[in-house]
Amino acid sequence: MNGSKDQILARIREALRSQAPVPGNHDYSHLAMTPSRPKPELENFRQWLPPVESNSENQWDLLTKSFHALKTDFGLLESKARLIDFVLELQRVEQWKRVGIHHGAMTDEIASHLEIEKLWVDEGYDPQAMEQCEVGISECDAIVAQTGSILITAKSGGGRGLSVLPPHHLVLARTSQIVPDLPSAYELLYKRYGGNFPSMISFITGPSRTGDIERIVVLGAHGPKKLTVAILKD
């Protein structure tokens, strides 16, 4: 059963028999444009979007600036031992008793040092049990310097719920996962998943927020109140 598919398509085809004017040529702004414009395609978007310098030092500066503006907590950890300390310190301060977590190279390592109850999500899990977790720990696909976004998928981030239900989302990442901008993040998605994308892909940019009451920003509207990114230098 697909409803009025044929009727709608017929109406569309009938409607499109008339030709629409060329896009966006009605106001004077086009005068400022180059006469032969590059095509509106992924590899050209960088010519117009906010710029990102290619050296990694500058990208790190940009990223930390974004993290500050978004109220994303982060740590740049020199070694594995430091990373473990960083997480254990968080656990001590926030007194986690239960953690939601998925299997992965970095998460497994951390889990082996966390002596608290763990909800492993990989084989399916009880959402009510996840609701009881103080924190969800996941890996990610990439971190976008330009926007301070974390790119996760149902595959890299332990499914759909782990990164959004617990009140604190802790992301484990490596410096090599930092990409300069959104176009690079999409290029990475094409390359990594090609014809077989996970059923959910999400750019997470800061902890959950709302401005629905007098446009005043409140963190932790429905998703995590806190987002922490622990980045291991490599």
Partner: peptide, 24 residues
């Protein structure tokens, strides 16, 4: 629309839970 550089969550969904996924 909102004066933000990018919105907090931008999520692409390509179907129901797929084989091998843990939720959805």
């Amino acid at each position: 629309g909102a004066g933000q550089q990018i919105t907090c969550y931008n999520t692409m969904i390509g179907g129901p839970r797929q084989p091998g996924e843990c939720d959805g």
